[in-house]
Design a protein around this nucleic acid. Structure first.
Lengths: 228, 228
DNA sequence: ACATTGGGTGATCAGGCGATAAACAACGAA
DNA sequence: TTCGTTGTTTATCGCCTGATCACCCAATGT
């Protein structure tokens, strides 16, 4: 009958982190929590996963929505801005190598459960940040790729890619992107060798690109498309 | 001041539908509601959209989850089982025509806001029905396509496609699929001419397929044959 | 015309949600 | 030590949710 007056709660032994670090830690774990549960997940469950009580969250974030916004910010912006555009446009290397290196690096960043899930959630919600990201892909990835492919095929340069070119590039890019969705969201069996997948997809793309891009029907071959 | 004792509520004039029809009507409208709001949407809002009161839902469905299950059933199963496999394997027609016709028809079915949204929601939830659907695509769409492409390229038939072949087909298929996501989920501007998009994607795919399929990679050797 | 039946409603419950206020505990400076 | 500051918890509020009840009224069959 005589336990010492219990220390109420076995308080965590953790050293006190600086407020900023603590906050960052919260955001990081919250990111994984929301990736798992969706943004409908409750603040109590989130707090439990953080090992603290729920009201404490409101000392660090004014509201749940503000916390969510920070989650978006870190997920979208944190991994960006590595000099990918320069990599893509370095004409001293074969285009195939550049594209392969780029997509290997790019998918290393986005093929993560949390990234993909939060991206899809934000897309379903129609959030601005999602549209912004689509624009980034178009302008900073696909447009340079098209420019390089045109150059490679000996076609004249043009300031903006045509809608058809962009669409073909989107289909290619989406195909690779969706590999990540199948693997990390659907948890469906995929070809485990990611580099092989990228390499094969690139082979198909580069082999077919020239045929589609050259608008005026090339002689000696049935017209590329029925349209136009 | 003698208005007749007001009829309480202007009760709907509708003729009584048969219970089954009414139920189906509820499921149909619930489908659109959940596609808009996500499955977190409240039963009260849903009832308001149906023009009835919330408790009435519970006369037709034991619980919200049961209603949701029926929504999944109708969305996934209703539009399926049109003789697509036969269309794909009809070797009396050029493979390119078959694929183009198939993808035009297939995307007519799935490129709808509600279909795509509910598909993605179920994928994020990790629902069985989603994995089942992935299997359907693999077995009833991609596997036949690969078989036909191999035949077209003069390669020997094989009972099952290799993992690499399947992956290349997935990347192609996903690229087309994601066009719908960009248009109807992200509401991002896309090339409006869907047939053109499909046609171009097919050109790229068929032109590149032969190169990738030939298993023993013999560098420097020209591809077996460009399909199509 | 009338009783019957079941579609439809208003009121309400228990539980979970985000958010807040006040009390408590740990640390750093004086 | 003592005090004030800052991190953390306990208790609680108001709201909204899914679900249930008792009741009402209109379409239907005879």
């Amino acid at each position: 009958m005589s336990k010492k007056p219990p220390p109420k709660r076995a308080r965590a032994k953790q050293k006190r982190l600086s407020p900023d670090d603590r906050r960052r830690e919260f955001v990081a774990k919250a990111t994984e929590f929301f990736a798992d549960e969706g943004f409908g997940g409750g603040t109590r469950d989130l707090a439990r996963r953080l090992g603290v009580t729920q009201p404490l969250l409101y000392r660090y974030f004014p509201s749940k929505d503000d916390l969510i916004k920070e989650v978006y910010r870190t997920v979208y912006l944190e991994p960006l801005d590595t000099g990918w555009e320069k990599l893509l446009t370095d004409r001293s290397r074969p285009i195939r190598d550049r594209l392969r290196e780029f997509y290997n690096a790019y998918t290393d960043v986005i093929f993560r459960r949390k990234w993909l899930r939060i991206y899809l959630y934000s897309g379903l919600k129609g959030l601005d940040i999602n549209r912004w990201y689509v624009g980034v892909v178009r302008d900073q990835i696909l447009t340079p790729i098209i420019r390089e492919c045109r150059h490679e095929a000996g076609l004249p340069a043009q300031s903006k890619p045509t809608a058809s070119e962009l669409e073909v590039a989107w289909v290619f890019h989406s195909g690779i992107f969706y590999y990540g969705v199948r693997k990390y969201i659907y948890e469906s069996p995929v070809l485990e060798d990611k580099e092989r997948m990228i390499s094969d997809a690139l082979d198909v793309f580069l082999a077919g690109f020239g045929r589609v891009i050259t608008e005026p029907a090339t002689p000696g071959r049935p017209p590329v498309k029925a349209v136009g």
